[in-house]
């Protein structure tokens, strides 16, 4: 599977603002599945926007984005991609387990035992029946990561996924993600503000 970007630019940014970008306004920017790509940028450079454009939940961009030859403007790419949103998009009224099951019910990708194992690996076993609104941001980030792994995908999009995690939890999360990427032979697009050497990247791009 290929994600191809052609002269993409957020409509609310001028060409001058993105003149140094490796991605925006690039004529033929291609991401291949099995590829791990780190996208770095300072705050306000459109990191989340880029992932939202690719995932198909936002279409306020000029240029063209295709996933396997199909424009992403028409539909959310949840069949091919999984996404850890920067704002996590968890459901406050549901518990930790319920938030994960909400996704897994749709895909039937993991068994309950596998979900429980991931929760335990990321130290959330005791929180599984707590409403997510009672969790810290770091704990919520871990729930969002587990939820993102509960579906088949060709690309995993991570938008500043470890911003509130300690090194130990980052390492565990990276382990889980790497295993899933390997099993699914999928690619990774990770955006970050700070340098992040959690993965071995095939490409590091400046936005």
């Amino acid at each position: 599977m290929i994600i191809a970007l052609d002269k993409v630019k957020p409509i609310y940014m001028s060409e001058q603002e993105i003149s140094c970008s490796d991605i925006y306004m690039n004529k033929n920017m291609v991401f291949n599945t099995r590829e791990k790509v780190l996208i770095r940028a300072q705050s306000g450079r459109g990191k989340s926007s880029l992932l939202n454009f690719i995932y198909g939940v936002k279409s306020s961009f000029d240029g063209h984005i295709e996933v396997n030859g199909q424009s992403v403007r028409k539909e959310v790419q949840s069949d091919h991609m999984s996404y850890v949103f920067q704002d996590l998009k968890l459901f406050d009224t549901l518990t930790v387990k319920e938030n994960i099951l909400l996704k897994n019910d749709l895909t039937n990708h993991k068994t309950e035992a596998e979900i429980d194992l991931m929760l335990s690996q990321l130290g959330l076993s005791e929180k599984r029946d707590e409403p997510v609104k009672h969790l810290s941001i770091g704990q919520q980030q871990r729930v969002a990561i587990i939820r993102a792994l509960c579906q088949p995908f060709h690309f995993l999009l991570l938008d500043e996924p470890f911003s509130h995690l300690d090194q130990q939890n980052v390492a565990i999360a990276v382990g889980l993600i790497n295993r899933e990427l390997k099993e699914q032979q999928a690619g990774l697009l990770l955006t970050t503000l700070d340098p992040c050497d959690a993965f071995q990247y095939d490409k590091t791009l400046q936005l």
């Binding site: 939940v57 959310v76 949103f85 998009k89 968890l90 459901f91 909400l102 996704k103 749709l106």
Partner: peptide, 11 residues
């Protein structure tokens, strides 16, 4: 927001 989030996670 709930509807948008559901849509975003694949519903």
């Amino acid at each position: 927001t709930l509807i948008l989030n559901l849509y975003s996670i694949g519903y």
